[in-house]
Design a protein around this nucleic acid. Structure first.
Length: 426
RNA sequence: GGAGAGAUGGCAGAGUGGUCGAUUGCGGCGGUCUUGAAAACCGUUGACCUGCAAGGGUCCGGGGGUUCGAAUCCCUCUCUCUCCGCCA
């Protein structure tokens, strides 16, 4: 959520920058400013009435103490007027505030100055590409066939147990998953991240604070009986650790890493995008989350990008880094890098990580602040990134490293898998 | 699931109708002392809204009510703890 002061003070700039996200903000910003004016005016009136009421109550107390019952009685009669008025004003104030809030939550975050213009993913900027992109060989087998060939993943049984998008990993397939999770966690520890294991469900307040609610509730599984949401990413519970907190600036940045299963309804997805491991309802992911000082957050974003690049390099996968254009940027993000690995049998790029700086957009809802040297409080910046999401990494590993002798496991991963290839008899 | 107790500032813990935004202790910060540190002593120490400021207002788990006046009384929800039951 944007800060009201920012909207008031840089109104035209806000509108212009929202336009980069293809968000027409003129009307809504106008309404927000008008409502805020009304809010302040109403509050002033309410405060005045309440001040008078408070004053009278104090005087009555003093009168009663000194035994002047009659005078106190007279004053009491007068104060009923205050009560009625303040009741009315309070209702008006609450209603203006709610109206204002409903508008504010509909305004997306402002894109960073460096965000390229554009409407769709076609307009994203390739900022880096590494590794050899081999053309699809005639003999190349896509991962969903390899998974069956080597008995790694059983999509049909997953279907039977839960439904499509819930695969059953088996044997070396399951062990590869476990190895990747451990590899990613250990790497994060080496990079100074603090490991946490969050709940896999969150309440509405948490989902609201990181921006999943109110707009993206259709994406989350919802356990209505208990009013809980299954997490679409560990970002939600991990960032919410710091909800309603005031940190000390010397403690920043805070670096957390968490493995979690992630649950996404993915309503409306179809076709080749959902084939095999490309898009699932449940998947594993290791997520890094940082709480940063505003002066350092973009520096940190670059470090996170470099860190994730390093992970992919260790897995020896060709990859590229995209800077998302305004139109492709998420509602909450100010700047996002997407990391994509090359899938040599599908002949396409697969997104395996998304690294974003949310600046104060989340922390404003989270009420996540820090105290500076002079004792003043400011909103902190929040950042997060996948490091990494497993299924598409698995897809790329299977496809890129398939040989007649089986699938070769990258060296860095072997200590975690305990095997260096996946074949018929290995 | 049943019974009971509770929720107050970073933490501990007073406060049961009237200048209480809240006694006190610890912690934090600043200072005195010290070569330095500890100890001791002195001072200071919540958040938010509004206002140029002075000031005003809100917040004692959330919501509602009683009252001129609520941290304090009533209702309700949520959560925590103890005991019993069940159970990985």
């Amino acid at each position: 959520m944007l800060q009201l002061n920012c909207i008031r003070e840089h109104r035209q700039e806000v509108i212009d920058r929202l336009a980069i996200k293809n968000f027409q903000g003129e009307q809504i910003i106008q309404n927000i400013v008008d409502l805020d004016d009304k809010r302040r005016e109403t509050q002033k009136q309410l405060d005045d009435i309440q001040a008078q009421g408070n004053q009278a109550a104090r005087e009555i107390g003093i009168l009663l103490k000194s035994g002047k019952k009659e005078e106190a009685g007279l004053l009491k009669e007068k104060t009923t007027r205050f009560k009625e008025q303040s009741k009315e004003l309070e209702i008006a104030f609450e209603s203006v505030k709610k109206e204002l809030d409903d508008l504010l939550v509909r305004v997306p975050n402002l894109p960073h100055a460096s965000v390229p213009p554009g409407k769709t993913s076609e307009d994203n900027l390739v900022v880096l590409q590494e590794g050899d992109i081999v053309p699809v060989a005639a003999t190349a087998v896509p991962h969903w066939d390899l998974a069956i060939k080597y008995d790694l993943i059983d999509f049909n049984t997953g279907n039977k147990i839960a439904g499509s998008g819930f695969p059953l990993y088996k044997g070396k397939g399951a062990r590869l998953q476990r190895a990747l999770i451990n590899f990613f966690l250990e790497e994060a520890l080496k990079a100074g991240y603090h490991e946490v294991q969050p709940p896999y469900v969150v309440n509405a307040a948490s989902a609201y604070a990181t921006g999943q609610l109110p707009d993206k509730d259709a994406q989350m599984y919802y356990a209505g009986l208990d009013d809980l949401y299954l997490i679409p990413t560990a970002e939600v519970p991990v960032t919410n650790i710091y909800r309603d907190m005031i940190l000390r600036s010397q403690d920043l940045p805070l670096k957390n890493v968490a493995y979690s299963a992630c649950f996404r309804r993915e309503a409306g997805s179809y076709g080749k995008d959902v084939r095999g491991l490309n898009r699932l309802h449940q998947f594993d992911k290791v997520e890094i989350v940082q709480i940063a000082h505003p002066d350092k957050s973009y520096e940190i974003l670059e470090l996170m990008r470099e860190y994730v690049s390093g992970l992919i390099r260790k897995l020896e996968l060709p990859f590229r880094v995209l800077k998302l254009c305004g139109g492709d940027l998420s509602f909450t993000s100010a700047l996002t890098y997407d990391m994509e690995v090359w899938s040599s049998a599908q002949g396409r790029w697969l997104e395996v990580s998304s690294i974003s700086n949310f600046e104060t957009f989340q922390s404003n809802r989270l009420k996540l602040r820090y105290k500076d040297g002079t004792g003043k409080t400011h909103l902190a910046h929040t950042l997060n990134g996948s490091a990494l999401a497993l299924p598409r990494i698995v897809a790329a590993l299977l496809e890129n490293f398939q040989t007649p002798e089986g699938i070769l496991i990258p060296k860095a991963l072997v200590p975690y898998t305990g095997f260096d290839r996946i074949g018929y008899n290995f």
